[in-house]
Amino acid sequence: MSFQPIKFYQTGTFTVGNRLLAPEERSVQASDKRYNSINSGHRACQGCGEALGARYAIDAAMEATQGQLICANATGCLEVFSTPYPETSWQIPWVHSLFGNTAAVATGIAAALKVKQKKGERNPAIRVVAQGGDGGTTDIGFGCLSGMFERNDDVLYICYDNGGYMNTGVQRSSATPPAARTATTMAVGSEPGNAFGQGKFVPAIAMAHEIPYVATATVADLRDLEAKVSRAMELRGARYIHILVPCPLGWGTASSETIKIARLAKETGLFPVFSAEYGEQKSALAIRQKLPVEDYLRPQKRYAHLFGKQPDVQVIAKLQALADRNIRKYNLLEGL
């Protein structure tokens, strides 16, 4: 994805802003007029990746639609910390839904807008976004999501993937990575942590639906994330963006390391960052400095059982093999 050619300013385009860039070349987040879709005072943990990812994504969508946006939200961390009745952090038209039906609610809003537009009651520019965590997306809401995809409803669905049910006490979801410890996949027995060979990678399933746009992103690459949201808003039909958002609580990382951990997930290849249109991969965000998976695993307490007195080299090698497969499959070394 050519979102911004690197210019040899102090920081190129890696930082949020850059005083040497023209204002129109800076990121949405660099602007003092950004929407701040999710406002201060929310109750997310210190260093929450999801709160950050949600602001990045929804601010970019608001910018792309000039504020003409309705958002449906699945139950989950994001809803619990942002909207304990009667307070809300959301500064956009926002609809609460159940854990599993967000995609269907968003479909309904899109359908209603279509009818209203036909009657001339509504501005056709209004767009719909649905968002939820990995539990609400890859497990509980998966049927509704797949339905939304195959009907090609005009909705952008954003999944914030923190690899588990975090607000209920860190239980496993189908997005929990192998070997990770959660409350339901304890680090005990002969194969401690989450099992290998289970779970699912929803971006690949979304691609199999051959919908107009599928992309992955992390909170560590802001410009890539913003470029993907704005590309998604250029298209109509079903679109899906899957954003990796580290969870200091569930992953056992320092609150200050949220972005660093997301960066390591990408640089090791464990989380491939790419985009696809109509079922075909279109871009890959290249790894800048390839690192062994150990660099990503070691700072996280959910993998602490791999690094006892004797590091569990076999399991680490299996995780490295997953990273290597991603690198090969999505062309992460060269980029696309």
Binding site: Q10, T15, G17, N18, Q29, A30, A44, G49, L52
Partner: peptide, 27 residues
Amino acid sequence: LFEARRCLSCGNCFECDNCYGVCPDNA
């Protein structure tokens, strides 16, 4: 100009907006 821009600005804010962007709490 290129050479000057290689400066890392060690220890002194050069207004890259990173702190403003990465704060999960808009603080």
